[in-house]
C-alpha cells in the first residue's frame, strides 16, 4: 500500500492577544492508503488543528505536509470533512445539502443526484431526501453530513469528533454504520483513508487500525498504538479482553501510568 499522508516535523504556532501559542510540535506521521487512523487526546492537544492542517485549511508554521504525493499549501480538494455538528444548511433539503460540495467545487450538481441518492440510501435516509434538516434527529443529520463528505468520492475522509454530540446508543450505532460504509464504498481495495478525531478512547480503539495518542501544550504525538483487533468488528469486539487492554494502555499513556493495575506487556496479547 502506498502512503497517502506524510506529515514531517509539522509545527504550528499561532498568535493570540496574550502571546503566541504552540498548537503542534514535531508531528511525524505516515498514513497508508486505506488506513483508519484515530486521533485521541485531551482537549487542547491540537488534534482538530492537525486535521485542518492536513486538509490545508490552516497553515502550518514549520515542517511539511504531503497528501497523495502533493505538498499541501492551500486547501486540497481530495478530502471530505465531517464536523462535530452536522452543519447542514437549514434552507436546503437533505438531498440538496448532500449536493452542496458539487456546487461549491464548480461541478454540475445534476450529474451527482443519483450518487447522492445512493449514498443516502446506503445510510438509511432514502426516504428523507426531501426533508428539511431540522426534521431529522441528531444521528440522522450526522449520517447526511457523512453522505455530503462522500459525494465527490474523496480518497481522504477527515472526521472531527463527528459523533461527540450524540447519545451513547446512537453513537455505538454510528460507529458500526461508519465501518460498514467505509467497507462498502470503494470495496476492499479502494477503501478510503480516514483520520478520525475523538475524545473517547473506546471509540478510537474500536474503529481504528492505529490510534495516535496526543498530549497537550504543545500538541505532540505521545504514542502510536497498532490495534490488532480482527475485522469486521462488531459489538462483541468490545467485550473481548484484548479490546479492554488496548483501551487501558492508551488511558495509561494519557494519564501518565496512574491507572496501571498490572504489568502485562502488550506483546502478550497482540
Amino acid at each position: 500500500m502506498k502512503n497517502i499522508i506524510e506529515l514531517d516535523q509539522v509545527g504550528m504556532v499561532y498568535e493570540t492577544g496574550s502571546g503566541s501559542v504552540e498548537a503542534l510540535r514535531d508531528i511525524r506521521l505516515t498514513v497508508r492508503e486505506g488506513e483508519f487512523i484515530s486521533l485521541v487526546g485531551p482537549s487542547g492537544c491540537g488534534k482538530s488543528t492537525l486535521l485542518r492542517v492536513t486538509a490545508g485549511l490552516r497553515p502550518m508554521t514549520s515542517g511539511s505536509v504531503v497528501v497523495d504525493g502533493v505538498s499541501v499549501t492551500k486547501p486540497i480538494q481530495k478530502v471530505g470533512m465531517v464536523f462535530q455538528s452536522a452543519v447542514l444548511l437549514k434552507w436546503r433539503s437533505i438531498l440538496d445539502n448532500v449536493l452542496l460540495p458539487a456546487e461549491l467545487a464548480g461541478l454540475n450538481p445534476r450529474k451527482y443526484r443519483d450518487r447522492a441518492r445512493e449514498l443516502l440510501e446506503l445510510v438509511g435516509l432514502g426516504d428523507f431526501t426531501r426533508k428539511s434538516p431540522n426534521e431529522l434527529s441528531g444521528g440522522m443529520q450526522q449520517r447526511a453530513a457523512l453522505c455530503r463528505a462522500l459525494l465527490l468520492d474523496p480518497p481522504l475522509l477527515l472526521m472531527d469528533e463527528p459523533f461527540g454530540a450524540l447519545d451513547a446508543m446512537t453513537r455505538d450505532d454510528m460507529n458500526l454504520e461508519l465501518l460498514r460504509v467505509w467497507g462498502e464504498t470503494g470495496g476492499q481495495e479502494g477503501r478510503k483513508t480516514i483520520l478520525f478525531v475523538t475524545h473517547s478512547i473506546p471509540e478510537a480503539v474500536f474503529l481504528a487500525d492505529r490510534v495516535v495518542v496526543m498530549s497537550p501544550r504543545p500538541g505532540r504525538i505521545a504514542e502510536i498504538v497498532d490495534v490488532g483487533l480482527p475485522r469486521p468488528r462488531s459489538m462483541e469486539t468490545r467485550a473481548t479482553p484484548e479490546f479492554g487492554q488496548y483501551t487501558l494502555d492508551i488511558y495509561d499513556t494519557l494519564t501518565g501510568g496512574q491507572a496501571k493495575s498490572d504489568e502485562t506487556p502488550r506483546q502478550a496479547i497482540a
Binding site: R52, L57, K74, P75, Q77, M81, V87, P101, L104, A105
Partner: peptide, 13 residues
C-alpha cells in the same frame, strides 16, 4: 459557524 465556512474552504470555493 466557522465550520460552515470550512465547508466552503475544503472545496476552494
Amino acid at each position: 459557524d466557522d465550520e460552515m465556512l470550512d465547508l466552503g474552504r475544503v472545496f476552494n470555493a
